[in-house]
Design a binder for these strands. Structure first.
Lengths: 103, 103
DNA sequence: TGAGCATATAACTATATCGTTATACTATCA
DNA sequence: TGATAGTATAACGATATAGTTATATGCTCA
């Protein structure tokens, strides 16, 4: 993998490295949602959520659609969930090893 | 997924969000290596590489083994490569969509 | 024991980014 | 047209982290 490709991959991981962004993605897994509803769901402020949604969109993880004066966001790249599954599996394994140490 | 689980997943992505750390992992894919050799391979400084190796180890991605006064690091969690593959696939798809726009 | 090599850590600077507050923009509707 | 709702952006302070330089630690061997 070239240095440039490595940077692109790293950038993608970086977008997924914020808990709030993961929460947003998790919420959008249920279907598209307005900014207002996402804000309520993740218990944050509207400007903060808007900013994170923009970051997610710039990386292609979500897509937006405007209807009247409300904007709906939805998942645009299902691979995120595959990534989360792999990480979760790896974490589970790690913790079970650890608990075995104490068990 | 609970808020705590989300944070753990995010932390894992964060460790993978630095290009130099990905380069180190990529190099270690060839087999275990001393800090000195990793340093040469990724073209950085020894203290910097040591710091990143520690971060990778704390998250369980690599493991170390000491022999005399040299320390060998190796991959300890193969799931990283699966993660990179998923991200690469997703990136490829994205770029091919983009090039199609111009094509 | 003392020199030298390999690695780790400390201290620092520079930069990036999170969350907040205030405000701008845009569409709807009375 | 004016008021309001939904969203985006600007500016700011606080915190985190990458990389560097200097130094400490630990092992080996003469």
């Amino acid at each position: 993998m070239s240095a440039e490709a490595v940077s692109l991959v790293a950038a993608r991981f970086k977008v997924l490295s914020e808990p709030l962004r993961l929460q947003i993605l998790q919420y959008l897994e249920n279907g598209e949602s307005s900014v207002t509803n996402v804000t309520k769901a993740v218990n944050s402020t509207q400007p903060n959520v808007s900013k994170h949604l923009k970051i997610l969109q710039d990386e292609g993880f979500v897509a937006k659609r405007q209807e009247g004066n409300t904007v709906f966001y939805k998942i645009a790249d299902e691979s995120i969930f595959e990534l989360c599954d792999v990480v979760c599996g790896s974490l589970k394994e790690r913790f079970s090893e650890r608990s075995a140490v104490f068990g």
